[in-house]
């Protein structure tokens, strides 16, 4: 296998990591019946909080933990609005994205002032558990968070389909009235799903600032949250299929990075836009047979 392909596969896994984490996070929310459009802002907030905490404490892992907690806190707010009060999920989710983006930028100014170059940090180093093994060695030279993200996929599948908590999540996302009649606390399950899911989104953001970039920039998320929303539909709300979607997008993204330097006579913006256009195309193909969770977007009111 040539060096180009090996590099491409390795980069795909790297680029896909925040998408896997973000998409699994959104999956928790949506399977419980809540569309969380706060994802873009929560990832931004996670990237920021993780960066600041890691910088202040000197521990990258503490930064990741803080990003997860920050995400869960944002999930709590989303749950209060969308579950407790039952307000419109589109608008409240976007509101949370705007709030957390504004809050992160406000805090950034207070902490870092107006630096000429984005502040940076010594990022996570990559692990190479397979050492110098040909082909697999360089492919699996990845950040610990990438391995964690890959391991979480089957874990989420197991949690959703093989545990009673997962059954409760799916029940409140499909038929909250029946779940309630069966003694499941719809509110409590939805709160939990939103907090767990948003915590994963926070981790996705921290991966970008603490591993992939080692810096915090204003454009660090650049629509990745919206891509995650699309990947869910593409993956038909199934954890394993969603993983393929994330790898596909990661692959296109990694490929465009390489095409930019390949000497192809096209403006680099064409390549930058490519993953987003591919996502829309994929939605068009897959979206027709999308089977949305039946109670998605419907607030549950126990009268």
């Amino acid at each position: 296998m040539d060096i180009f392909l090996i590099g491409l596969i390795a980069a795909t896994l790297r680029v896909a990591t925040p998408l896997i984490l973000g998409t699994l996070g959104e999956l928790f929310c949506e399977r419980a019946g809540i569309l969380n459009l706060g994802i873009e802002g929560i990832m931004f907030f996670g990237a920021f909080v993780g960066f600041v905490v890691a910088g202040a404490s000197g521990s990258l892992w503490l930064g990741v933990l803080a990003a997860i907690l920050a995400g869960a806190l944002a999930g709590l707010l989303m749950a209060f609005l969308a579950v407790q009060l039952g307000v419109n999920q589109h608008v409240s989710g976007l509101g949370i994205t705007l709030l957390l983006t504004g809050f992160s930028l406000f805090s950034f100014r207070l902490v870092f002032g107006e630096p000429r170059v984005p502040p940076s940090i010594d990022p996570f180093s990559r692990l190479s558990p397979l050492g110098e093994t040909p082909i697999l060695g360089p492919i699996f030279e990845q950040y610990a968070l990438t391995y964690i993200a890959l391991a979480i996929v089957p874990l989420v599948w197991w949690a959703l389909y093989r545990t009673s908590f997962g059954l409760q999540i799916r029940a409140v996302g499909e038929n909250p009235e029946a779940a309630d009649a069966a003694g499941v606390s719809v509110y409590r399950v939805r709160y939990a799903a939103l907090m767990i899911g948003s915590g994963l989104m926070g981790a996705a953001g921290a991966f970008l600032s603490l591993a992939q970039l080692g810096a915090f920039t204003y454009g660090i998320i650049a629509g990745r949250g919206w891509v995650c929303i699309a990947l869910i539909i593409f993956g038909n709300w199934e954890p394993i299929k969603v993983l393929w979607g994330a790898l596909l997008f990661g692959g296109v993204f990694a490929l465009q990075l390489r095409l930019q330097t390949s000497g192809l006579q096209l403006p680099y913006e064409v390549f930058l836009a490519l993953p987003y256009l591919v996502t829309i195309a994929a939605l068009t193909v897959a979206g027709r047979n999308a089977s949305y969770p039946a109670a998605l977007l419907k607030p549950y009111k126990r009268e």
């Binding site: 459009l37 699309a230 539909i233 996502t279 939605l283 068009t284 027709r288 999308a290």
Partner: peptide, 11 residues
């Protein structure tokens, strides 16, 4: 094609 407009407009 009933493709969700929220996602496509955002992208």
């Amino acid at each position: 094609l009933s493709v969700d407009e929220v996602v496509t407009t955002l992208l």
